[in-house]
């Protein structure tokens, strides 16, 4: 790889000219690495820890896909992207998939030609204000200065929300979550708005999280999910069903602790057997080894484990499952059947 980078520079890609665009799945296998687009840093979702290792909820999806395809959850190259660069990075093939709390919208799916492969987090836009401001509802924010990440759907929702309620505001556009946090703490804006999960993650990183409240209004639907390029359905299927396998695993009681044991021999639950490849040929249909889902689940655990480990109530971010509970528990997570 290194060699192609260097020589590519020297010969202006003369070496690789004419290389036809192959299917992403084959590319990833040939490369031995999955290129996964993530945020530049949002604690809990995707952020490098002090050793420079990427950790988080979105990162876990990347690792699961890498484990399913390559059998190795560490075979991931994380590409930090901003709101501006994420779609180009995906469209131009710089990354194979994007797991960057990206909202599934009509235009992104249809006009920008991307394929959302499912929803890994049901979110909604919220507002965070300092407690001493004494605001208890977003409708009281008439005339307030609002920090807002540009290039996100939240920017449009914000305009819609204030227009609908016929109140005014002054936007302070910022590029990254880190910047928004600084602006908000410096008092350059009265309120910071983004997905409520992001607000919780941001607040968790504050010195005194208790001084800030998240207002009760959720002003939009933000279904966040991984996405791939349009037109490569085999690859889209791989990502979609890897995500589904994590959700189904939780529903079926498969965890990282017992997945090896369950996969060692066919058990008495047919769907678990099909999922784990001890029965049927689902892996083969995807163009993956039979134990693809075993690897994916073993990488970080099932959906519930990933959630608890990264953003759940035991972490500083402390998000409740809410809408993101299994449908059997009254949430929206509902994996199509594995058969």
């Amino acid at each position: 790889m290194k060699k192609t980078i260097f020589l590519g520079a020297l010969t202006v890609a003369g070496l690789t000219a004419g290389a036809a665009a192959a299917a992403t799945l084959d590319d990833v296998k040939a490369r031995g690495k999955l290129n996964c687009g993530v945020t530049t840093g949002l604690v809990g979702f995707a952020a490098p820890d002090s050793n420079g290792e990427w950790k988080g909820f979105d990162v876990a999806v990347c690792r699961a896909v890498a484990a399913a395809v390559l059998g190795d959850p560490t075979a991931v190259e994380f590409v930090p992207t901003t709101g501006k660069t994420r779609f180009t990075a995906l469209a131009s093939g710089e990354v194979d998939m994007l797991a960057r709390n990206t909202t599934w919208t009509f235009t992104r799916d249809v006009d920008l030609k991307f394929e959302f492969t499912g929803i890994n987090y049901y979110d909604g836009q919220g507002f965070m204000v300092p407690k001493d401001l004494g605001v208890s509802s977003a409708k009281e924010l008439d005339g307030a200065t609002v920090c807002i990440q540009t290039g996100t759907t939240t920017e449009l929702n914000l305009a819609d929300f204030f227009r609908k309620n016929n109140i005014s505001y002054e936007p302070v556009p910022i590029e990254t979550n880190a910047e928004g946090q600084q602006q908000y703490l410096a008092g350059a804006c009265d309120t910071y708005t983004t997905d409520s999960s992001g607000l919780a993650a941001t607040r968790a990183a504050f010195e005194n999280p208790g001084d800030h409240v998240i207002l009760p209004e959720i002003v939009s639907k933000e279904p966040l999910g991984p996405l791939v390029r349009h037109g490569d359905n085999e690859w889209g299927d791989v990502v979609r069903w890897t995500l589904n396998s994590l959700v189904a695993a939780e529903e079926l009681g498969v965890t990282s602790a017992n997945v090896e044991e369950l996969a060692s021999a066919a058990g008495d639950k047919p769907e678990v057997n099909r999922l784990l490849g001890t029965e049927g040929n689902l892996g083969e249909q995807l163009g993956l080894p039979a134990d693809w889902a075993v690897k994916a689940i073993a990488a970080n655990g099932n959906y519930g484990e990933i959630f608890e480990k990264n953003i759940g109530e035991s972490t500083p971010i402390g998000l409740a499952r809410g809408l993101n509970a299994q449908w059997t528990d009254g949430g929206l997570l509902y994996s199509p059947p594995f058969r």
């Binding site: 709101g83 501006k84 779609f87 235009t107 992104r108 006009d111 920008l112 540009t150 290039g151 996100t152 920017e155 449009l156 556009p173």
Partner: peptide
């Protein structure tokens, strides 16, 4: 070059 680019892609 910023917001319009981001929003429309």
């Amino acid at each position: 070059g910023g917001i319009t680019l981001n929003q429309t892609g």
